[in-house]
Amino acid sequence: FTGAIICPEEKNIVYKAKKILERNVGRKLPAIIHLQKSIPISSGLGGGSADAAATLLGLNMLYSLNLSQKELAEMGIKIGADVPFFLYGGTCRVEGIGERIKKIKQKPASFYILFRPHKRLETKMMYKLYDKTGKDFLALAKEFCPDIKTIEKKFQSLNLKMKLSGSGPTVFCRTNNYNLAKKVTESYPEFNGDIFICHPQKEGLKIWKT
């Protein structure tokens, strides 16, 4: 197990996914796994959950386990609430604790503007603060990252509705106008973080054989 490992191996979500799969099939699944992360850690973008889903999907294919998408999703929910979604992918409505997933029609030519402050907000910590204060995740994220308030005002001035991704701190809005999205991203040269323009995908994870 190599790559972007920032915690003990047994606590890594990829390691957990492999172990859960092994327990379910009743056998060891030897593999060399190299983790290369592109989605920032603790940013509310589901990077870890995507890694876990890819592990389940990849090992299922590598060992020809022939487990269905539903069976993998049932294992995934034991790892994290977002894992099943990444096995289905596309645009979905997710309910319950992540186990009820319904595909919804994707509106064409839509873009998402993402602002990710350089501040890590761990999901576990955010839930503890929610239980303690009763404040929602967006209110808490604004306290940790004051830049979010400025971004929200900018979005509002352009009639764009800002939302929080996951437990934060990444915030986003949707637009069908790419030029507008570009204008928004260029209006914050002093922003202490990363700014992305993303286009939604119709599918979930893909496995490439090399």
Rank of each mutant, 00 (worst) to 15 (best):
R116S: 14
P146Y: 00
N159E: 14
E95S: 15
L138H: 08
C145D: 06
G96A: 00
F85G: 00
E122Q: 13
T150A: 12
K105N: 07
A139R: 12
Q106W: 00
F155E: 06
K142W: 07
T123I: 11
Y130R: 12
C92E: 08
K103P: 02
F86P: 11
F86A: 03
L158D: 03
D136A: 04
K102P: 00
F115Q: 05
G96I: 00
R93V: 13
K142G: 06
K107W: 00
Q156H: 14
K128Q: 15
G96R: 00
M126P: 01
R116C: 12
Y88S: 09
K154T: 12
K153V: 07
K142S: 07
M126A: 08
V94M: 06
K105I: 07
G98V: 05
S110I: 15
K107E: 14
R100E: 12
G89F: 06
T91F: 09
G98S: 06
E143C: 10
T123D: 09
K153F: 06
G90D: 11
S157H: 11
Y127R: 06
E95Q: 11
K132R: 15
L114W: 04
R120V: 00
K128E: 15
F86D: 04
F86G: 05
K119Q: 14
T91E: 09
Y130V: 03
Y127S: 03
L114P: 05
K153R: 15
F111R: 04
K135A: 11
C145R: 02
F137L: 05
Y127D: 04
D147S: 15
L158E: 14
K135M: 15
C145F: 06
L87C: 01
N159S: 14
Q106E: 13
I151S: 03
K132L: 14
R120E: 14
I101F: 02
I148R: 02
R100H: 11
F86Y: 14
E152H: 05
T123M: 11
G89L: 11
I148H: 02
C145T: 05
Y88K: 13
T133K: 10
F85P: 05
T91C: 09
H118L: 08
L138Q: 07
I97Y: 04
I151H: 05
E99T: 06
Y130K: 14
I113R: 05
D136T: 04
P84W: 02
G134Q: 08
H118A: 01
P84A: 06
K102H: 07
V94Y: 06
A141M: 06
K135C: 11
E143N: 12
Y112K: 12
E99V: 03
S157E: 14
K154E: 13
R120P: 00
K132M: 12
F144S: 10
L129T: 02
P117R: 07
R120N: 02
A109K: 15
P146N: 08
G98Y: 00
K105S: 10
L140N: 04
F155M: 13
K107A: 10
G90P: 01
S157T: 13
L87M: 10
Y112E: 12
F144N: 13
D147C: 09
E143T: 11
Y127N: 03
F144G: 03
L158R: 13
S110A: 07
E95M: 13
I104L: 09
I148D: 02
I101N: 07
I97D: 08
